[in-house]
């Protein structure tokens, strides 16, 4: 909004604009208090990893979203606002368990994730595919076709591909272990090079 009338000279004098550090400190306090008062429906933070910065978001139920940088922070938060709740704040505390497990995973000290998950962003067939994926063991792969057969829809390899491409919890729900039956790794929502890196990381252990 603009200051319209003849007082622009005064408006600037009402106070120097607050500094970024000051506002960040206020924002942190707000996030803690919102969480304590049960007003924080979605908490998020970012985490630097060997496959680039990840955005992590959690509801009170559990981890609800892991997103790669290429998905765009604004777009991811916008979708969370629309599909979960607009009560979203940067609030690292709720993501402590996710950060710990992901750091252990990238350090090759963890082969399965044990933190609580919130799968509400996925439904129907896609959700049953995601529920199956943790059954594909660390360091192994399965073809789209094999996964389709395992969830009792043997003709649905393409739909399994879609389920993987829309996985709201990549890495933690290991869609990177689903590959093409001709041996190529296939598409990945973090980019094929990231899929290669994750499979290499698990193979080296």
């Amino acid at each position: 909004m603009t200051v319209d009338e003849p007082c622009q000279d005064l408006a600037g004098l009402f106070g120097t604009p607050p500094g970024a550090g000051e506002l960040a400190a206020l924002g942190e306090r707000l996030a803690v208090r919102a969480d304590d008062e049960g007003l924080l429906d979605v908490a998020y933070r970012t985490l630097d990893t060997p496959v680039g910065p990840l955005l992590l978001a959690a509801t009170a139920t559990g981890l609800v979203r892991v997103a790669y940088e290429r998905e765009g922070v604004e777009a991811v938060l916008g979708t969370l606002a629309a599909r979960v709740s607009p009560r979203i704040l940067r609030a690292p505390r709720r993501l402590d368990a996710a950060v710990r497990e992901l750091e252990e995973y990238f350090a090759r000290r963890r082969t399965r994730f044990e933190l609580p998950l919130d799968l509400r962003l996925s439904a129907g067939f896609r959700r049953s595919v995601l529920a199956y994926l943790p059954g594909i063991g660390y360091g192994t792969t399965a073809s789209y076709q094999a996964v389709a057969a395992a969830v009792h829809h043997p003709g649905a390899a393409r739909a399994v591909g879609t389920a993987c491409a829309t996985n709201p919890l990549p890495i933690v729900v290991p869609c990177h272990r689903v590959v093409r039956s001709d041996g190529r790794v296939g598409a990945y929502l973090g980019g094929p090079e990231v899929k290669h890196r994750l499979l290499d990381l698990e193979a080296d252990r």
């Binding site: 009402f14 106070g15 604009p17 607050p18 000051e22 506002l23 206020l26 924002g27 707000l30 979605v42 998020y44 604004e74 938060l77 916008g78 969370l80 606002a81 629309a82 599909r83 607009p86 009560r87 979203i88 704040l89 940067r90």
Partner: peptide, 25 residues
């Protein structure tokens, strides 16, 4: 379905103005 901004964005867009108002009052 809501088309609202995430609240984090509301804080970053308007936090400074609200602080100036609070200081002044």
């Amino acid at each position: 379905m809501s088309d609202k901004l995430p609240f984090s964005e509301v804080v970053s867009r308007h936090g400074a103005t609200v602080l100036l108002v609070c200081r002044a009052v």
